[in-house]
Design a protein around this nucleic acid. Structure first.
Lengths: 344, 344
DNA sequence: ATGAAAGCGCTAACAA
DNA sequence: TTGTTAGCGCTTTCAT
């Protein structure tokens, strides 16, 4: 257990000054080849590694980004993280990752903790609780201090910083329209994320599509619950009392549970009922049958957010140049919807 | 954009010395109530936050743990991370998370990067490539330096440090036995992770169970591929030419694809064929039908690893006290296997 | 009760 | 070409 060696120790061992060692290790032109060689050799031999902390203290730059995720078990966030990680690594940045669990308190605490020189900037998705409380002072304070923040997925207009979002309304509109074009007449909506913005916006897109095509929305066909707990029961009830030939599921869990219910009832997908999902995650790809769904490009979201933040940190963009990037979506056709012969 | 304030600035503003400010902020008994009040008020007013970097440099402790994950999209690793995160937060530690993508180079680079004062210890899952190359010097060097490491899931005997693992052989044995007890005679194995230790060990457990119950393993019933690419084709071939009434799938993706194939062929689960999976992730829970599978307690794995590492860091356990913790598994019965009436 | 000074590991301006 | 010194933000002896 040989502790790490410092520049000072090298200096002492080689009877030169500390700054000579520093310069030699940085390959400065000021130092003679002879001395450089000697010092570098000694350093290598003793596995010298510069102390990052000391460097950061000096440069006022840590090359570290703080990431806030509401959770990591949802495929979407895992993929966003992957995207961030990719460009961060390319540009030599490390990631400090914190999972807020959608708690306001944890979010505030974490941001306080990290905004003291530990990180150069934040990439964050606002916790649900924070959004409900409408308490954004911690974001504002940090921006005030000159630390850049990029918000993704969940944002709020009161926080004046860069944002990367998905157009939920438009995407839901397109998904619903797709069902109509594949000849579905009675299109239901199933959600287990009531209360979240995404749920609100996707519902809006669904309603917009129906209205646009002169279909009066039927309340009985809209299941919008806060959790997945009673979802199966409600879907069964709906199917007991209504004719349904298309279902737009707002989140992956809803899609999976809907599929399970239909299967239990002996309803064939897509022959009897078509299903279209949102968020093209692992559940969609590997479900039986594979699910047609809206791909959100989570990975791109992460990449864009990271690139933007790093540009801000490195002052390639002025701090006050604020933008909102909208990541487009794409419909991935699989086997849970009927093949369309008329393309549009 | 008002930059962060330092202790020095407070001292200047209040015409006291730096050390007085430091002591006052730390509520030292040496300072008069009067002065303390004045200083603390001023600090609060100007939102003073101590610079973590400077503190870490001083204490030689960063209260930060480096986490190495082969990937984050697999539910298992996401859950391990969650477990680590939980205890780390409780004990006031931050996490620097790095995804190695199973690359040896990235693993070495990351560990080099972080082991320079940035982190107090590592929790790591060895990258596949590293395991293939059998190159463990980076781990050994870091341990030499006195930085503790806890390895989880994938380990190697040449690395002498704390470990947290699953008993793959035993678990696979139990899963296979379960199929036999639910009256399956011809039990196939499907894997898309050939080459990994997990694949090797689970296969071993499967064979052990067959042998134990006097069944001669049939090579035609063992599909062990390196990726999921040709998996469906191979499963179809197997089903074309063999009688199969039980399938042990070694990973979640194999389970999902097997389910898709059976469904396409009109084979009923579990009436015609029972399936049992490994790793009780999101795919198992939400598949149609829900999958009976071996639960690995990924969350516990993370918790145990983190607790152990922090104890090491805080020197509650001597550095040389090395243990290997085996996390037990549990079979979660769902709908992809026949109900057993004889419990065991 | 307050302050001066050294030091954590390193860089960089300046001097020799 | 090499060394001295100050300083990054903070804590902690040791004087005063």
């Amino acid at each position: 257990m040989s502790k790490r060696i410092t520049i000072k120790q090298i200096a002492a061992a080689l009877h030169v000054s500390i700054s000579t060692v520093s310069k030699a290790l940085n390959d400065s032109y000021e130092i003679s080849e002879e001395t450089k060689r000697k010092i570098q050799e000694y350093a290598k031999e003793h596995k010298y590694k510069p102390n990052t902390l000391a460097l950061s203290l000096q440069n006022k730059k840590t090359k570290t980004i703080g990431i806030l995720l509401p959770n990591i078990l949802t495929y979407y966030y895992a993929r966003v993280l992957r995207g961030i990680e990719k460009v961060a690594t390319e540009k030599g940045y490390n990631l400090i990752t914190c999972i807020t669990n959608d708690s306001y308190k944890k979010e505030v605490y974490t941001m306080e903790m990290l905004s003291n020189g530990t990180i150069d900037g934040f990439i964050a998705c606002i916790a649900n609780e924070t959004l409900e409380l409408k308490e954004f002072d911690h974001f504002k304070d940090i921006l005030e201090e000159g630390t850049p923040i990029v918000l993704y997925n969940r944002v709020h207009k009161d926080i004046n910083c860069d944002k990367v979002v998905t157009d939920n309304i438009k995407s839901a509109y397109k998904a619903t329209r797709f069902l109509m074009r594949s000849e579905c007449k009675n299109i239901a909506l199933v959600s287990s994320t009531k209360g979240l913005d995404i749920s609100k916006f996707r519902l809006k897109g669904y309603l917009k599509a129906l209205t646009k095509y002169d279909i009066t929305p039927n309340e009985e066909l809209i299941i919008n619950l806060k959790s997945e707990k009673k979802l199966k029961t409600r879907i069964n009830e709906m199917l007991d009392n209504n004719q349904v030939d298309g279902i737009f599921t707002i989140d992956e869990v809803s899609a999976a549970l809907t599929t399970q219910v239909l299967n239990k009832r002996g309803i064939k997908i897509p022959e009897d009922v078509s299903i279209i999902g949102f968020t093209n995650g692992i559940l969609s790809r590997y479900s039986t049958p594979p699910l047609t769904s809206v791909n959100r490009f989570a990975h791109t979201t992460g990449e864009v957010a990271a690139a933007r933040l790093i540009d801000k940190i490195e002052e390639k963009i002025p701090f006050n140049d604020i933008t909102t990037e909208i990541i487009k979506t794409e419909l991935v056709e699989r086997e849970s919807t009927k093949k369309l012969f008329i393309k549009f």
